[in-house]
């Protein structure tokens, strides 16, 4: 994330990269100190860094979906790391199941984000409110379907 933010080359991109880097440091500190509240802050810093680095770009970035998925993956792995305790013996099926769950969630979330980015690029900024409402509605619809299936 930090590298991606720095890759813009200009001063604003560097500032964004610095903010994202701060997020990385906060994430690392949160994991080392086993301080869960640091994780959302780290995600927010990293996301903010990305947004700052995109300040002067009017075109919607297609990589935003990947960045969103990466942020979720980082948060999930950090949460898993904090939840794990060396004293607790995790059976293999538990680890496999959790790995698959995280992977499926990240892929699914990235795909949905990709669709959203595509839709937003087509409709541009005029339809942003509708896009946000659409995201919430889509998530709610998926949740209802999953609930009914379960």
């Amino acid at each position: 994330m930090t590298v991606y933010a720095f890759s813009g080359g200009d001063t604003v991109a560097s500032a964004g990269g610095a903010v994202a880097g701060a997020g990385t440091v906060v994430l690392a500190a949160g994991i080392v100190l086993r301080f869960p509240i640091a994780i959302p802050w780290a995600v927010m810093f990293a996301g903010s860094g990305y947004v700052v680095s995109r300040t002067h770009h009017s075109v919607v970035d297609g990589w935003a979906a990947v960045v969103g998925g990466a942020l979720l993956l980082a948060a999930e792995l950090a949460a898993w790391s904090l939840a794990s305790d060396r004293r607790i013996h995790e059976e293999r099926p538990v680890v496999v199941r959790q790995s698959l769950t995280v992977a499926a969630l990240v892929v699914f979330a990235a795909l949905v984000s990709f669709v959203l980015v595509g839709a937003a690029a087509v409709s541009a900024t005029a339809g942003l409110l509708l896009t946000a409402v659409g995201v919430v509605a889509a998530v709610c619809a998926v949740a209802v379907i999953l609930r009914l299936v379960r």
Binding site: A64, A65, V67, L105, V112, S113, A120
Partner: peptide
């Protein structure tokens, strides 16, 4: 719109 893509996951 990118922020929506970051938030959606």
């Amino acid at each position: 719109p990118e922020i929506v893509a970051l938030t959606a996951p």
